[in-house]
Amino acid sequence: MARERGRKVVASNRKARHDYHIEDTFEAGLALVGTEVKALRAGRASLVDGYAQFTDNELWLEGVHIPEYTQGTWTNHTPRRRRKLLLHRDELTKIQSKTRESGRTIVPLALYFKDGRAKVEIALATGKKEYDKRNALRERQDKREAERAMSTRESR
């Protein structure tokens, strides 16, 4: 069987881009057990409540829901267990120093397979205030209306 190529997205966290200002993104590997990989290949995962935090200079992904594998036996995994993120040491120190500043957190943006290996895209982010969310929504609507007006004018 040929080796997988490219990027196959399993789950994405669209709400994170609405709730946070994304400052920097990183690609991290995941330490998974066999049934988790099989459940991900079936396309089942949720990043909605996910976050990452440091414990003993290691970065752990928490709150991510990977449901149990349906054909799994007693060896099945716990759906919301902590999963270790695999990054280079210099990336870990950079992330750790930036999260020590107030208001910064680490959120997962996407969970995907890249060349057959499970990866997660994490972001260093700061929370948005309610008025920031409203302004972003208003800007998006204004931009959409301007594009609509331009397209109707061009068609005449």
Score class of each variant (00 low, 15 high):
78 T>E: 14
79 P>S: 15
79 P>L: 08
79 P>K: 10
79 P>Y: 10
79 P>W: 14
79 P>I: 11
79 P>A: 13
80 R>K: 15
80 R>F: 11
80 R>G: 03
80 R>I: 05
81 R>E: 11
81 R>T: 06
81 R>M: 10
82 R>I: 06
82 R>T: 07
82 R>A: 15
83 R>F: 00
83 R>N: 01
83 R>V: 08
83 R>Y: 01
84 K>V: 06
84 K>M: 07
84 K>T: 01
84 K>Y: 05
84 K>D: 02
85 L>I: 00
85 L>S: 01
85 L>G: 00
85 L>Y: 00
86 L>C: 11
86 L>P: 04
87 L>I: 09
87 L>H: 04
87 L>F: 09
87 L>K: 05
87 L>Y: 05
87 L>Q: 03
88 H>I: 02
88 H>Y: 06
88 H>P: 04
88 H>K: 13
88 H>E: 05
89 R>H: 11
89 R>Y: 12
90 D>F: 15
90 D>S: 15
90 D>G: 13
90 D>L: 12
90 D>I: 07
90 D>E: 14
91 E>T: 07
91 E>P: 02
91 E>N: 12
92 L>W: 13
92 L>M: 10
92 L>C: 05
92 L>G: 01
93 T>G: 09
93 T>S: 06
93 T>N: 12
95 I>G: 02
95 I>K: 03
95 I>R: 02
95 I>E: 02
95 I>Q: 01
95 I>C: 07
95 I>D: 02
96 Q>P: 02
96 Q>Y: 12
96 Q>K: 10
96 Q>R: 10
96 Q>D: 10
96 Q>N: 06
96 Q>A: 05
97 S>Y: 07
97 S>H: 07
97 S>C: 03
97 S>E: 12
98 K>Y: 11
98 K>Q: 15
98 K>R: 14
98 K>M: 09
98 K>F: 07
99 T>M: 12
99 T>P: 02
100 R>M: 05
100 R>W: 12
101 E>V: 06
101 E>N: 12
101 E>L: 11
101 E>G: 06
101 E>Q: 13
102 S>Y: 14
102 S>T: 15
102 S>V: 08
102 S>W: 03
103 G>H: 06
103 G>P: 00
103 G>C: 08
103 G>F: 04
104 R>C: 04
104 R>S: 01
104 R>V: 12
105 T>P: 00
105 T>G: 07
105 T>D: 04
105 T>W: 08
105 T>H: 05
105 T>N: 06
105 T>L: 07
105 T>M: 04
105 T>S: 15
106 I>D: 03
106 I>Q: 08
106 I>S: 04
107 V>I: 13
107 V>P: 01
107 V>W: 01
107 V>N: 03
107 V>D: 06
108 P>K: 01
108 P>I: 02
108 P>H: 03
108 P>N: 02
108 P>D: 05
108 P>W: 09
108 P>C: 03
108 P>Y: 04
108 P>E: 07
108 P>F: 07
109 L>E: 15
109 L>S: 03
109 L>K: 03
109 L>Y: 05
109 L>F: 11
109 L>C: 01
110 A>R: 15
110 A>S: 14
110 A>G: 02
110 A>H: 04
110 A>F: 03
110 A>D: 08
110 A>V: 08
110 A>E: 13
111 L>A: 00
112 Y>V: 01
112 Y>D: 09
112 Y>K: 06
112 Y>L: 13
112 Y>Q: 00
